[in-house]
Computed example of a mutant assay.
Amino acid sequence: MTYPTTHPATWFVTGASRGLGLELVRQILDRGDNVTATSRSAERLVAALDGSDTSRLLALEVDLRDEQAVSAAITATIERFGDLDVVVNNAGYGFLAAVEEVTDAQARDMFDVQLFGAWNVLRSALPTFRAKRSGHIINVSSIVGLVAFPGWGLYAAGKFAIEGLSASLAGEVAGLGIDVTIVEPGYLRTDFLKPVSLGVASTEIEGYEAIREMTAAHQAMPGTQLGDPVRAAAAIVDVAVSGAAPLHQLLGSDSYAIATGALKGLAEEFEAGHARAITTDIPGVN
């Protein structure tokens, strides 16, 4: 368990101005912990936290694509609070389009924020964690980081990358006292599916009518999602405080049902291809 018990913990949370990130910051402050919260608008973040005690908050506007800016934010956190205990990579946005419809610029923008932004945070935070041989990294993925669906290709690609990065990192730092958890929520009742957080194809290509229908259905979904962001944020706090979460922490009964169903289907696929798989071994080599 790496979460400190004798003094307030210090958190670093990205993507904190709305949705799950905002609720997480609110709960961290209510616990009496310190938190650096990054967003594109510190003013909007502070305004959204009206009613919370923000004396332990460091609100920063940080371009996560800028490695030097991220490093400066981590340095400012330690200078302000004297330590760093938990990092939550939460920044990101959704995107719905057929693979063929995604432009090069759209793909690069997604990876810059969702993957390389998180990687910048990791590179900046890990030296502190290694030096004190403790710390907890929580990377917020999605059920779409485990199971891809038509129309979610770009978003899934970014989240699948986060999954692979996190799994490798977990093995690398296991002997250094550093914990890594991947959080995979299902549908949360946030702004994620609203225009402010959801990109769509700028040019629609004939033949992908099913993607158009799926996109329209998701755009009509806000307010009906199963997941409660307050409970999801509480679960993330518990992941850090308990220090007992598995590498993959699903959030939501929908996420659990999709993941376990996909796991069964994947096992069946592997078994179906078993006979062909073993034909590629060099004979006589065990």
Rank of each mutant, 00 (worst) to 15 (best):
Ser17Trp: 10
Gly223Asp: 10
Arg133Ser: 08
Thr224Gly: 06
Val285Ala: 15
Arg123Asp: 09
Ser52Val: 15
Asn89Arg: 00
Trp152Val: 10
Thr10Ser: 15
Glu268Cys: 00
Gly145Gln: 10
Pro222Met: 01
Ile137Arg: 03
Glu79Val: 02
Gly15His: 09
Ile211Tyr: 06
Gly284Ile: 02
Arg40Asn: 10
Tyr155Phe: 15
Ile278Asp: 13
Val144Pro: 06
Gln68Lys: 07
Leu122Arg: 00
Arg231Tyr: 08
Asp179Thr: 13
Ala59Phe: 01
Val230Gln: 14
Leu266Glu: 10
His136Val: 09
Ser39Glu: 00
Ile205His: 02
Arg40Cys: 00
Leu29Ser: 04
Ser134Met: 04
Ala9Phe: 12
Thr224Val: 07
Asn120Cys: 02
Ile178Met: 01
Asp254Trp: 07
Gly171Arg: 12
Thr280Leu: 14
Ala272Tyr: 01
Leu115Ala: 03
Ala97Leu: 07
Ile178Gly: 02
Leu263Met: 14
Ala156Ile: 13
Thr36Tyr: 13
Phe149Arg: 07
Thr75Leu: 08
Ala69Lys: 06
His274Gln: 13
Ala170Thr: 06
Gly135Trp: 02
Lys159His: 08
Val113Pro: 00
Leu266Gly: 04
Val144Met: 11
Val87Phe: 09
Met214Cys: 07
Asp109Cys: 00
Arg40Asp: 04
Asn139Lys: 02
Arg133Val: 00
Val102Lys: 00
Thr279Gly: 01
Leu188Asp: 01
Gly117Met: 10
Ala47Asp: 12
Asp50Lys: 13
Glu67Cys: 01
Gly32Met: 10
Ile137Cys: 06
Tyr155Ile: 02
Phe160Asn: 04
Asp104Ile: 07
Pro195Ala: 05
Ser39Phe: 02
Ala118Thr: 15
Ile143Arg: 08
Asp30His: 07
Pro4His: 01
Ala170Met: 05
Pro283Cys: 07
Ala69Val: 08
Tyr208Cys: 01
Thr260Trp: 12
Ala105Ile: 12
Leu154Ala: 06
Asp109Ser: 08
Arg130Lys: 11
Thr10Pro: 01
Asn286Lys: 14
Val13Ala: 02
Gly265Gln: 15
Tyr3Asp: 09
Leu29Glu: 00
Gly145Arg: 02
Gly32Arg: 08
Glu206Gln: 08
Gln249Lys: 12
Gln219Thr: 08
Gly145His: 06
Ala48Trp: 08
Val230Thr: 14
Leu266His: 09
Thr10Met: 11
Leu146Gln: 14
Ala257Leu: 13
Gln27Glu: 03
Ala91Val: 03
Ala69Trp: 05
Arg212Asn: 10
Glu271Thr: 14
Leu198Pro: 09
Tyr3Cys: 04
Val147His: 04
Thr280Ala: 13
Pro195Gly: 05
Val46Arg: 08
Met221Arg: 15
Ile205Trp: 03
Asp104Val: 12
Tyr3Ser: 03
Thr224Pro: 03
Asp83Pro: 01
